[in-house]
Computed example of a mutant assay.
Amino acid sequence: MFLPRFQPENLEHNKLIFELVNEMATRKECTHSQLALAWVHHQGSHVCLIPGTTKIENFEQNFRALSVKLTSEEMAKLESLASVDAVKGDRYGGTSATWRESETPDLSSWKGE
């Protein structure tokens, strides 16, 4: 399968982003996966974490992400690292439908209850 993010012209750049995330995870004393789940959890009450797992030890690791606290500065840093402009190469090789083809309205247009 052709995965543009892992092609040589993009891989070194994206590897640097991964290393920055790992450094933050190390400072937060968590895994990079826990940091990613914590980032999603900190998006607001309109987001619900649903990590899939088939092993109890992975479930326990995922659950520990809820105790990872992120500052607004850390959230901003993670946002910048995960932005569409920061990561080089498409996620898929153009053969799969992605969010770009969706009709999901922009989050700013949603009405909270």
Rank of each mutant, 00 (worst) to 15 (best):
Cys30Asp: 04
Gln34Ala: 02
Glu79Thr: 10
Phe59Cys: 10
Glu9Ala: 08
Leu70Met: 09
Leu16Met: 10
Asn58Cys: 08
His46Ser: 11
Trp99Thr: 00
Lys28Gln: 06
His13Gly: 04
Leu49Asp: 13
Tyr92Val: 01
Thr26Trp: 06
Val21Glu: 11
Met75Phe: 08
His13Trp: 08
Ser67Asp: 14
Lys111Pro: 07
Ser96Ala: 10
Ala38His: 02
Gly112Trp: 06
Leu78Tyr: 01
Ala65Arg: 06
Thr71Ala: 08
Met1Ala: 10
Thr31Phe: 04
Arg64Asn: 15
Gly44Arg: 12
Trp110Gln: 08
Ala38Arg: 07
Arg64Phe: 03
Thr26Val: 11
Thr95Leu: 09
Val40Asn: 07
Gly94Pro: 09
Thr71Val: 04
Leu107Trp: 12
Thr54Ser: 15
His42Ile: 00
His46Trp: 12
Lys15Arg: 15
Pro105Met: 06
Ala76Asp: 14
Pro105Leu: 05
Pro8Ser: 14
His13Ser: 09
Arg64Met: 12
Asn22Arg: 15
Pro8Ala: 13
Asp106Ala: 12
Lys111Ser: 07
Gly93His: 12
Glu23Tyr: 04
Thr31Tyr: 05
Glu73Ile: 00
Trp39Phe: 14
Asp85Ser: 15
Asp85Gly: 14
Leu35Cys: 02
Ser109Arg: 15
Lys28Arg: 13
Lys69Glu: 08
Leu3Met: 10
Val21Trp: 01
Val87Ala: 11
Glu12Gly: 01
Leu107Glu: 14
Val40Met: 13
Glu74Ser: 07
Asn22Ala: 09
Asn22Phe: 00
Leu70Phe: 08
Phe18Val: 12
Gly89Trp: 05
Met24Asn: 04
Ala97Arg: 02
Leu66Trp: 02
Gly112Phe: 09
Leu20Tyr: 02
Ser108Phe: 00
Ser96Phe: 03
Arg100Asn: 09
Val47Arg: 14
Glu79Trp: 06
His41Cys: 03
Asn10Cys: 03
Val84Ile: 11
Arg64Pro: 07
Leu78Asp: 04
Leu107Gly: 01
Ala36Val: 00
His42Asp: 11
Asn62Gln: 09
Glu113Ser: 13
Thr26Phe: 07
Ile17Asn: 09
Asn58Lys: 14
Gln43Thr: 00
Phe63Gln: 14
